[in-house]
Design a protein around this nucleic acid. Structure first.
Lengths: 237, 237
DNA sequence: ATTCAAGTGTGATTTTTATCACATCTTCCT
DNA sequence: AGGAAGATGTGATAAAAATCACACTTGAAT
């Protein structure tokens, strides 16, 4: 579960109402996590939501054969964690701070009280959760149905929507991502990602700017992943 | 969005409370859809939920290059449709009846009234939606990270959980699925699926029974897709 | 029972992706 | 500034998956 409470760079996120927002703020307490440290581990009890006041978090999972993959990346203003239903009371993934983070922690039971009392807040949360579900669905589609190049293209488009800014007449992705991380995100090897990126660069579709990815021809990327033109709220990391 | 209100064959689905269930039943009306017909099309306004009283529905999407893939398959007792947030007011996929269906239709606004009035029902719906999100997340993982053979194995396991029954000392999947459909589900070609299945059969992992798939060695399948041992509520179609 | 359409099975070949093995480039640490 | 660790870039090769082409089965319909 993830949602964005406010936004800085992002132009395209759904907002909780002021009322809900302040209700949440009332019940959260602050926690600091240094870069490289973990907010929680696989197997920990999943009874909290986390609101990122500052920093980047990635959710990862390691497989039996020692590989790791990235389930999600969150930024300033995002809210994530399981509103654990009845049964899955443990996280099935790790949450690592990519940068130093300031986190607002919300106890599930505190939240539940609010939801119970205020049907309209619960409905708002419900719609939000539905939106997240749509995001996940669309990722599933993009990562599964058009090969690794399609998966990569789609991911770059999503990064542009989530972390992009205009730069000259290009889009600059303001977040540095390693080739290996992209690989862990789309289920490909570092080398494959590297080669695909090199290829997109020689074709003039992508560029470089001081280590940041520039998108030169976003339509070409859309063609590769058979972009459906989803609303920006859905086409995001 | 999909949830199962009750179950017949399925051993492993989360239940809405009686109260919620009857509240839903009160506001739904009935619709019949013949096999091969569509319940709705991509682009139709998404302002309803659908409860399958009887039959099978698949959600499909066709790409620009004429291919089709399957997003989801639903059965007796499942509830699906978008509780459209504020903005994505259209379906982005088609819903086709695989068999003759009897559908209970719930208008979104009717539902919303109930949720508003009864915070506890809204919370229940919220948890359910979260569960669906977890299901989708786990599918994303399974379909992305261990190749097409892993995707296929995971899908067979999910089918066993959703439509399986004991047969001798095997599990028989009581729903016939075509190779091509499996391909559309996991993002592989019919031929690849066919070869993979043949391979699993020669290895003795799968069997045949009158056109139905038999699972002989489920542990082997789990090994292939690096099964995490998710709860049955999550490891389903 | 015969026919036709739909589905399955398989070979040959090409394309995509992973693997292994290094060289090079960057970063950042003292 | 120098050196180590972490990233990136790339070749050679192997494995996985798609594509094309066609034979074989099955099942439903006349």
């Amino acid at each position: 579960m993830s949602l964005t409470l406010d936004r800085t760079i992002q132009q395209n996120t759904f907002h909780l109402s002021e009322k809900t927002l302040s209700a949440l703020t009332d019940i959260m307490y602050e926690q600091h996590v240094d870069a490289g440290k973990y907010l929680f581990w696989e197997g920990d009890t999943a009874d909290k939501l986390f609101y990122i006041k500052e920093g980047h978090i990635k959710l990862t999972k390691s497989t039996s054969d020692g590989k790791e993959y990235i389930l999600n990346m969150f930024d300033n203003g995002d809210l994530f964690g399981e509103l654990s239903s009845f049964m899955s009371i443990n996280y099935s993934y790790n949450a690592m701070a990519i940068t130093d983070c300031v986190i607002g922690v919300i106890q599930q039971k505190d939240l539940e009280v609010i939801l119970w009392q205020h049907g309209e807040i619960a409905v708002e949360f419900l719609k939000w959760t539905q939106l997240l579900n749509q995001i996940t669905q669309s990722k599933l589609r993009d990562l599964t149905f058009h090969g690794k190049l399609g998966a990569l293209s789609s991911t770059i488009i999503r990064m542009a929507n989530s972390y992009g800014e205009p730069f000259d007449r290009y889009i600059r992705i303001t977040k540095k991502v390693k080739n290996g991380e992209l690989g862990e995100y789309i289920g490909a090897t570092r080398e494959s990602v590297n080669r695909m990126l090199a290829d997109l660069r020689t074709k003039g579709i992508l560029g470089q700017e001081n280590g940041y990815i520039l998108i030169n021809d976003i339509q070409a990327l859309k063609d590769i992943c058979h972009c459906e033109g989803c609303p920006l709220e859905i086409c995001r990391m």
